[in-house]
């Protein structure tokens, strides 16, 4: 019996729904709800985490991320400008940097800064510097490529207009190209901020005082006292407090800029002579 194409699609979809219902039923019947509630939703444990999880952990996660993002943004901009430089060695250095730090785990950079540097140079960074440098160094490698694409997406005519008004190359860059490029790269940079928020947890490898705990460390520490998954769920939700709004912001900005594409090397605004 030959089924029509549409009929077959209907049967197939029905089968998928059927399977889903079956799995849900099985899980609901087999699962030990009391056990699950105790493991994930232990309200006493959750309550014991407040207010510290907000006033210390969430706050520190935000501070660490902001430091890393700020430093990474500045360094990323410098690297992007180096990549577009007419001086070849600058381009090479930027390329090597970007390829290197995109290719190694962020954890390695944290280890290098918190253990490697003190051993090699007798130089000990404080926690804020370590986080800022480690997150920034890694973040810059990703942001540099994004910013470069944004700079190149600014139409050539904008630079020509600026130059013809007597602005120097640098002035045109600062007053015209960079502000326009940042509008273009705001959505991808917001995504980068989300990634850094999560990577800020890597600071756990350093011995932290309690008031230096960020979310992951805080959750893990609570866990060691309370044998339940509740602490993990609570700090997980705290991450979402940061990352969900950022995700919405990113998509909103993307819509507002009309999803402008940032990868047309032809339209580089950077090749004006003299």
């Amino acid at each position: 019996m030959a089924l029509s194409k549409r009929k077959r699609a209907q049967v197939f979809r029905g089968a998928q729904y059927g399977l889903l219902v079956l799995v849900v039923l099985v899980v609901a019947l087999v699962a030990d709800w009391g056990e699950i509630k105790r493991a994930f939703f232990n309200l006493d444990i959750a309550a014991s985490m407040f207010p510290g999880v907000i006033t210390i952990a969430l706050k520190n996660t935000i501070v660490y991320t902001a430091l890393g993002f700020g430093f990474g943004l500045a360094l990323g901009l410098v690297l992007a400008l180096m990549k577009l430089s007419s001086v070849a060695p600058y381009r090479w250095i930027a390329t090597i940097y970007i390829e290197f730090f995109r290719g190694v785990p962020a954890l390695l950079v944290f280890i290098a800064l918190s253990f490697g540097v003190p051993l090699a140079f007798q130089l000990q960074f404080d926690i804020y510097s370590t986080v800022m440098l480690a997150l920034g160094i890694v973040g810059a490698a990703y942001m540099a490529e994004t910013i470069r694409a944004g700079l190149q997406a600014v139409p050539k005519g904008q630079v020509e207009a600026a130059r013809s008004l007597g602005m120097s190359q640098g002035r045109a860059m600062i007053s015209i190209v960079i502000p326009q490029a940042f509008r273009i790269v705001l959505p991808p940079l917001t995504n980068e901020l989300i990634l850094l928020t999560k990577d800020s947890s890597l600071i756990y490898i350093i011995g932290l005082a309690r008031d230096q705990y960020e979310l992951t460390k805080f959750g893990r520490e609570t866990l060691s006292r309370s044998p339940s998954l509740t602490p993990i769920l609570v700090v997980g939700l705290c991450y979402l407090i940061i990352t969900l709004p950022l995700g919405y912001l990113s998509r909103y900005l993307e819509r507002r800029t009309g999803g402008k594409k940032v990868s047309s090397p032809e339209s580089t605004g950077l090749g004006v002579s003299a």
């Binding site: 005519g157 904008q158 130059r163 013809s164 008004l165 007597g166 502000p179």
Partner: peptide, 21 residues
């Protein structure tokens, strides 16, 4: 000094090139 020279020469483009931001 090309920047100084350009200050005294105004240019109007086919595609306007106003600073969009």
């Amino acid at each position: 000094d090309i920047d100084a020279a350009r200050r005294r020469i105004g240019m109007v483009f086919q595609s306007f090139n106003l600073f969009s931001h």
